[in-house]
Nucleic acid binder design. Structure first.
Lengths: 306, 306
DNA sequence: ACACTATATAAGCAAATCTAATAATCTTAC
DNA sequence: GTAAGATTATTAGATTTGCTTATATAGTGT
């Protein structure tokens, strides 16, 4: 221990004895004596007056004792700060998630986590995707949940779930008469899509291209919420993850129509910093995430993650 | 160096680089890396995030950096305090002396010392004998000047000078007709002596005993000043060191009469703590004291020091 | 001066810490 | 993406530090 010398000198001063201080510090009298002498040689100053028994400190020794006390006090403070920090950090799992992962589902997970690990807490932030990446990269959170996860130098991806994508339409749309949509049913319909720079847009484009379908993209947005609004208003249909529109379905504002095989899936992944050292609670939460059965029936991995 | 670890971490934080910090501290990159890892292992906490270049500190690392800075600042303060203390101590020679050593003589010595060592100063305190011993023993002064010096376990005596003792009488006393006093001249005279517990008293008693002389001790005091007063008032004669009554002789209040051989001498010695480590100035002053020619002609050492 | 206790010193050994060489990792530029 | 350049980690061996035991020296009290 690096503070042993300060402790030793403090104890020499307190007990007025090298040998008592030595045994307090678990070393031999000889070792303590040598350390004291080395210290005095370093400082080129006598700190302890050996001419008296019990020993007494010189003026310089009293100064040095002050130094030792201050340093030990400050170190003690640090240890306690560090302890608090670790207790706090180790008890809290911080997760950043995109909005569309689904509040209810995640809160179910968190609930189960609390049941298993009563001492820990989970803090979930809902952010826009790029903010999720940022939070993970800067280590402000332990885990991130994003769709179409992209790995990179500093980022590792763990696949989590694949969400079924369905056609979303207003209840008044003609397509709602069908119980299942085949790709060519969408040929030429008014379509509301995602912005072109979003992975989900590229995936849907690929789907259309594969089935040689041409939709008429009348509107596009950078977020799911706006798309749902536009669809509900009858501006067109869209393709969305089924579970992100549960509320609107219940309200009768949107109708989901399954897409005939080959199905479309939106992959949702867990991202974390490469080589991240997880503390107990974070590791436990991660394990829980991976252990829980995925709601979707099929497990087909999307070939194009980007 | 015991503060090397704090410096190293501070430098790692400052340069955001282990290797630069290593070369700043004059060690190899490998050593610095190992020290950082040992530190982290000790604390069981990651302090530096290696996943980024330049390196960044973790929260715990920032706490530790604060600790390092505080400790280094405090240590710096200590070094400067110590420096001041040493400069002060090493430049000042502290001397405690009994009153009767003679102010003028000592100040001549001090003057010579200043001439030779212009950077240094001498502080002389005049104290009662027991206070001189106390000051030397407690290390409040470097040197003490006392008469009839007594060595002891913690005290070393260096003989310094021997002062001639003469009979002191009022100008009106019959003995003043003599130019030299022989022991039996004092038989039966009214005598003013020192208190019985003083070494000088014992020495004079021994002198009387040796020469089978009986004086009539009418008064006794614990200090020289009072004795001189009483003698001047004609209450009796006394035996005193010649140089301690120079002023009264000049004023015509006292008359000194030499004592015929075997002469009486008062030894004055230098005392200091045993094994005392003298700093430059103190050693120089001590050398000067011993080098200076002693005023008295004879060097006979008193057999009985106590 | 003696016995008793405490500190200093000496010698040998064990452990820590360093250096040099090499492997692994990160960044940058193509 | 990959290769080059720079930085950090690891390994192995040499060096140094620091410890322990044994013994000498020193301080205290009787």
């Amino acid at each position: 221990m690096d503070f042993g010398n300060f402790r030793l000198f403090r104890d020499i001063a307190a007990t007025k004895s090298v040998s008592r201080a030595a045994s307090l510090n678990g070393i031999s009298q000889s070792a303590a004596s040598q350390r004291l002498q080395d210290l005095e040689r370093d400082l080129d100053t006598i700190l302890v007056d050996r001419g008296t028994r019990p020993l007494t400190l010189t003026d310089a020794g009293r100064f040095y004792l002050e130094l030792c006390r201050d340093i030990l006090r400050r170190h003690e403070q640090f240890r306690s700060e560090l302890g608090e920090l670790k207790a706090k950090v180790e008890g809290v799992v911080k997760v950043a998630s995109i909005y569309s992962v689904g509040l209810s589902e995640l809160s179910q997970l968190v609930h189960e986590f609390y049941r298993r690990y009563p001492g820990s807490t989970v803090e979930v932030e809902y952010l826009r995707p790029e903010k999720v990446y940022e939070a993970v990269l800067s280590d402000r959170v332990d885990l991130g949940l994003v769709s179409y996860p992209e790995s990179s130098r500093h980022l590792t991806v763990l696949p989590w779930r694949e969400e079924e994508m369905v056609v979303a339409a207003s209840p008044y749309h003609p397509l709602t008469r069908k119980t299942e949509i085949l790709p060519y049913d969408l040929d030429g319909v008014a379509f509301i899509g995602f912005d072109e720079d979003l992975p989900i847009r590229r995936e849907i484009d690929r789907f259309f291209r594969e089935h040689r379908v041409q939709v008429n993209t009348t509107l596009h947005f950078d977020n799911l919420q706006m798309i749902k609004e536009a669809v509900a208003l009858g501006s067109g249909v869209s393709i969305l993850p089924a579970r992100t529109m549960e509320a609107e379905i219940a309200q009768g504002r949107l109708v989901p129509i399954p897409i005939g095989a080959p199905n479309l899936f939106r992959p949702v992944g867990i991202i974390h910093r490469r080589k991240k050292r997880f503390h107990r609670a974070a590791q436990a939460f991660l394990d829980l995430l991976q252990e829980l059965p995925v709601a979707e029936p099929s497990k087909r991995l999307s070939a194009a993650n980007i």
